[in-house]
Amino acid sequence: MSDVTPFVPIVLDLPVHNFYHWRHLCLVHLGRCSLRHHVEGDDAPALADFLWVKNDYAILQWIYRGISTELFHLVVRDGVTARDVWTALRDLFQDNRDARISQLHTELRTLAQGDNSASAYCQRVKAIGDELQELDSRVDDRGLVHALLNGLNERYAQVATLIPLLRLFPTFAEARSMLQLEDLNLARKARNPQAFHTNYGPSCAPGGGSSSGYGSANQQPRSSTASSSTRPPGVSPNYKGKNPIPGYQPQRTRSLTLRAPTPQAAPPRASCTNSSTSSASDAI
Rank of each mutant, 00 (worst) to 15 (best):
K54A: 15
L165D: 06
R124N: 10
D78Y: 04
F169R: 09
R77A: 14
D3V: 10
R155L: 12
A190Q: 13
C26L: 15
A226C: 00
W62V: 12
S102E: 14
I10R: 03
A195P: 01
A118L: 06
W86H: 01
Q220W: 03
L152D: 02
R100T: 01
Y248F: 12
A217R: 14
L51W: 02
E107M: 11
L60T: 11
S223I: 06
S177K: 08
R176L: 03
V11D: 04
H38Q: 11
N199P: 00
T69V: 12
T277E: 12
D183C: 09
S34Y: 06
E174P: 07
N96S: 13
G241H: 04
P170F: 05
S211M: 13
G208W: 04
P221A: 10
N243H: 08
N243R: 08
M1W: 07
A160K: 10
T253I: 01
S203E: 06
R23V: 01
R191G: 04
Q94N: 15
F72W: 10
P268N: 13
R222S: 05
Q251L: 05
L12Q: 03
R77Y: 08
T110V: 08
T230V: 05
P164R: 10
H24E: 12
P193A: 05
S275Q: 14
D42Y: 08
A175E: 05
N192T: 15
V4S: 14
R36W: 02
P261D: 09
F7L: 09
C33D: 13
L89A: 04
D49V: 09
T230N: 00
S2F: 03
V145C: 07
Q113E: 05
Q251Y: 02
L168H: 12
L165N: 12
A175W: 02
H197R: 11
N199V: 14
R167N: 04
R83H: 09
L74N: 11
L35A: 13
T253C: 00
A44N: 07
H197N: 12
C272P: 04
L168Y: 07
S279Y: 07
L104W: 02
G41T: 11
R176E: 15
A112N: 10
I101Y: 00
L184I: 14
F93S: 01
L25T: 03
Q180S: 11
A173S: 15
